[in-house]
Design a protein around this nucleic acid. Structure first.
Lengths: 271, 271
DNA sequence: CGGATTCTTGAAGTCGCTCAACGAACGTGG
DNA sequence: CCACGTTCGTTGAGCGACTTCAAGAATCCG
């Protein structure tokens, strides 16, 4: 729970970035996940014009810090981020992990200052969207405004779901949900759903799920022992999605319900 | 944590409502807390025109339910609400308590369906704001759009703060924060900051703070024993705001820090 | 007044945390 | 390339905060 991972590390300038792309939404492979959803080609063109630039953020570098004045939203082009709040005691609460197509910075609109710190989990690139210019565009492109509202609303429901598991789910249930959530997000981006790299440390996972690093480690070991996942360092393979889903849907911690859930998958022994 | 409080109870039709007001934002005493913030008189007039109607919701009645199709946002005119999600096991997570001037339903914009159930905690009245008409108005009243974005953004940061205490705060710290938060919200509305009615049950508080009803009861008893609050059923008086703030800011659970915090208030004995 | 609901209090249990030690992986410099 | 230090991850033992279970008291409301 320490806040040290927020600290700015010297950038690793030797990292090879993917070849620069054309800097346009129109050519972006995540167009269907990001701000341009539902826009016509000409409308996307107008959005292209206000994207200030693509900005590179190296692993462990902050994209922005809590309290900094807000000017722009950021769309993740590639790479991964975590957003974290740090309380007075130095504990960090990670409010989310963002990947390609996700939008960062919406929590700053209300106050004009960022309420959390966004740190790159690997070498990343974001599209900087000046908020003032975006609002100008809203009046000209109603579909963009509609979709922007949907994105903010989804952020609200996403956080409600986090509240749900933070408040009344068991550790194993939280962790199963975490893995399945990552899986579905990678699937939505065209990546393998059952085999992926954890871009974040065990500590980050713990700070997201409201658990300690030791608990995460133990859960990972147990899931591996049960044959539900394969784990090699930060590479995770989901071997038994049904078992994880049974856990995630609430069979955990209740012997009867778990037995019932497992009974529907006769090929598996009870945990 | 049971979901039974969500159940529809027969309305108490004998409750005397306050005299009907003029149904206009322009005459509303919560104008400075609600959607019309920052609008000119003529702009407020245009907002008035799209308010469908004032709708009365009796105690324990739902304003809307999870999964219902979304058409309107609702501004609380008077009364109180809770918004709750129910998971598969029947546990409810209360995502927030709303009072006069607060806006309800923003989480439904993304999916077109309400993601939670909103239930009146006392006899209440809301202003129904058809979302389609509101979006029409955005193009004509840019200040309204700006403020709407601020409201949604604030909802995101509010939920982040809930995540923060759900994840890594002690029970007493959560509860102190809860009381102080209610206090400041009543103060912002011109009510007494240190003496108010808890509109929600102990169970609701627990389901909001991620604690059991028993824990809430014990905390309330302890706070009373320590002389920090006065409690008579649902009437609460904050007697020692400084003590509660020390607790809320993290002095709790850490003897050294708590001693340090208390040392700054020499009139008080250590807990 | 009486039944139902809500709240309070106590005793026992448990899940996840704290503390501690060790092992593995990484990357930095020799 | 290896030695080394540092960070990160794993595992165990014991503990503590909150829950669970249970019973009784207070309150609400017809």
């Amino acid at each position: 729970m320490s806040a040290t991972t927020i600290a700015l590390k010297p950038a690793n300038t030797a990292v090879p970035f993917p070849a620069a792309s054309n800097n346009k939404c129109s050519g972006c492979s995540f167009r269907q996940l990001c701000l341009p959803v539902g826009l016509s080609d000409s409308e996307v063109g107008r959005l292209d014009q206000i994207i200030a630039r693509r900005r590179r953020v190296f692993k462990d570098e902050p994209l922005y810090r809590a309290e900094q004045p807000f000017h722009s939203l950021y769309a993740v082009h590639f790479g991964h981020f975590k957003t974290a709040q740090v309380n007075l005691r130095g504990n960090q609460q990670i409010t989310g992990f963002q990947m390609a197509g996700d939008l960062l910075g919406m929590d700053a609109i209300g106050s004009g200052r960022h309420s959390c710190t966004a740190v790159a989990l690997d070498d990343a690139e974001v599209c900087e969207i000046p908020y003032a210019r975006l609002t100008d565009l809203f009046s000209q492109v109603p579909a963009l405004l509609q979709h922007f509202h949907r994105i903010m609303s989804h952020e609200i429901t996403r956080e409600q779901n986090v509240m749900l598991f933070l408040s009344n789910m068991r550790a194993e249930q939280r962790f199963a949900l975490f893995l399945l959530n990552l899986s579905s997000r990678y699937a939505a981006r065209g990546y393998a759903a059952s085999c992926f790299q954890l871009r974040m440390s065990r500590e980050d996972i713990g700070d997201y799920l409201g658990l300690t690093i030791e608990s995460i480690s133990r859960l990972l070991s147990r899931f591996r022992r049960e044959g539900w996942v394969k784990v090699e360092n930060r590479e995770v393979s989901l071997l038994d999605r049904a078992a994880l889903e049974a856990l995630a849907s609430g069979a955990a911690g209740d012997a009867e319900e778990r037995a019932a859930a497992l009974a529907q998958r006769p090929q598996l022994k009870a945990a």
